[in-house]
Design a protein around this nucleic acid. Structure first.
Lengths: 199, 199
DNA sequence: GATAAAAATTAAAGTAGTTTAATAAATTAC
DNA sequence: GTAATTTATTAAACTACTTTAATTTTTATC
C-alpha cells in the first residue's frame, strides 16, 4: 500500500463526476476511504478461493479476471484497464471464497475500497448508491451483449467485433489473452488471423 | 392495462422488502407509479427496433428475452419468471431502439414502471437507488457466471448445470427454448438427452 | 375429437473449431 | 547480449456440434 498521488485522485474524480456531483466534504470523505496499491506484471490481485476484500479502480495498467478449467485452460471473463472497476463481486459482497483469479497483464496501479468502507460510504453519502448503480448498469449491458454474441456469432465474427470495439485493448494484449477471452484456442485464432489477412 | 390486484401488490412488496424497508407513504407512492398488464402466450412485450418504455416485474408467467440472427435462429439471453424484472435495459435507459425481442412463453401478468416514473421514484425515494443496485448486482453476478460457463464448459456440462440450477424452469420450457438458451441446436440437445438417459 | 401445426427423435453427412506436434519468432531474464 | 522461456505459426488428424431430411410424438385449434 502506497500513498495516493494527486494524479490518481484526479483520475477517479474524473470518473465519478461523469455520474454524480460531490461537494468538497463528500469528496474528501471518499478519498479518506481509499488505499493505493501497485501490482507488478504477473502479480495477483486475487486468487480463486481467497476472499475478495476490496473493489478496485484501475488508475493505470491492465488486469484480467479469469478461471482455470479442469484441463488447465484459462478463460477470461473480463479485462480491466484505466477507469474500470474490477473485483470478484460475489466474493466481495458475501465475503466468501472467490470464483475468479485476477492478475496484472501490465504493471498496474489501483485505488481500493474495502467492503466496510464502501458500506460506510453508502450510508453517509447515499449518492454513491446511484454511482455504483450506474456503473453496474453499464457493465450489465456490456455483459448481456457478450452473452448474445457468444450465442449468435462464429469465432471469426466475434474476433472482428472485438478488434473493432476494442482496438486499444487489442494492441496491449497477446493473442493468447484475446483467444482466452473469445473462447477459442490460440491455434485457431492464429488461423483466423491468417485467413483474414489474405482477404 | 388492467387494474392492480391486491395479489400483485403483495407480491412486489414481498420482493422489495427483501432489500429495502418502506413506510406507508413511500409504498403508496411507489404503487401509484405502476401499471398492470396481461400478456397472452406468444404475445410480444417488446420488439427489436421499438423503444423499451418500461421496466417490468413478473407477477405470474414466463417471458424470454432473445434475438434472431441472420439465419433466422433465435438466441435467448434470459428467461424471466415470477419475481424477476425484465426489459431491454439499454433501450430503456437511453430510450433508443431495442436490441431484443421479449415475448410470453405462458400467459403472463406484469407490473410496469415507465422511465419518467422510475426517475421520479429515484428522486423522491432515493432508497430505490439501492434496491435497483442490489437487483442489478445479482443479475450481473449471474450473467458473469453464464459467460464463464459458456467459455469453460461443453454443451453437456452446460445442460446438466442448467437442469440442476433451474429444475423449476426446465419443467416449464420446451427443449427448443432450452437449446436456444444453451447455444446449441434442438437436434443436438435431443441427442445429449438420449445419451444421458442411457447412462 | 379430428385436423393442423409445432416439437422431438433419429440417422447420416458435413464443418467449425480442437488437439497434437514440430518449428519459428518474440520476449524475458540474468 | 545470450540463454531460456513464452508466444505465434503451420499442418494434419480428430471431435463436438450442425445441417438436412424423414418420421414420430405432442400440443394447439376450431
Amino acid at each position: 500500500m502506497t500513498h495516493l498521488t494527486k494524479m490518481s485522485i484526479d483520475l477517479i474524480f474524473q470518473n465519478i463526476s461523469r455520474h454524480i456531483q460531490l461537494d468538497k466534504t463528500e469528496a474528501d470523505f471518499f478519498i479518506s476511504l481509499l488505499q493505493s496499491k501497485k501490482l507488478k506484471r504477473k502479480e495477483f490481485l486475487l486468487k480463486q478461493g481467497d476472499t475478495c476484500r476490496t473493489e478496485n479502480f484501475i488508475v493505470k495498467g491492465c488486469l484480467r479476471t479469469y478461471t482455470i478449467d479442469d484441463n488447465g485452460f484459462e478463460h477470461i471473463v473480463m479485462f480491466g484497464i484505466e477507469y474500470w472497476w474490477v473485483g470478484d463481486l460475489f466474493s466481495f459482497l458475501t465475503q466468501s471464497p472467490a470464483t475468479y483469479f485476477i492478475d496484472a497483464l501490465e504493471d498496474t496501479e489501483i485505488l481500493q475500497i474495502s467492503k466496510a468502507n464502501l458500506d460506510k460510504l453508502f450510508e453517509i453519502v447515499p449518492k454513491f448508491e446511484r454511482f455504483f448503480r450506474l456503473i453496474l448498469q453499464n457493465a450489465f449491458i456490456a455483459q448481456q451483449q457478450r452473452i448474445n454474441q457468444n450465442l449468435s456469432y462464429t469465432a471469426e465474427q466475434r474476433y472482428l467485433d472485438f478488434i473493432t470495439k476494442h482496438p486499444d485493448l487489442e494492441q496491449r494484449l497477446s493473442q493468447k489473452q484475446v483467444s482466452a477471452y473469445l473462447g477459442i484456442t490460440p491455434v485457431f485464432l492464429s488461423m483466423l488471423r491468417k485467413k483474414l489477412s489474405q482477404k
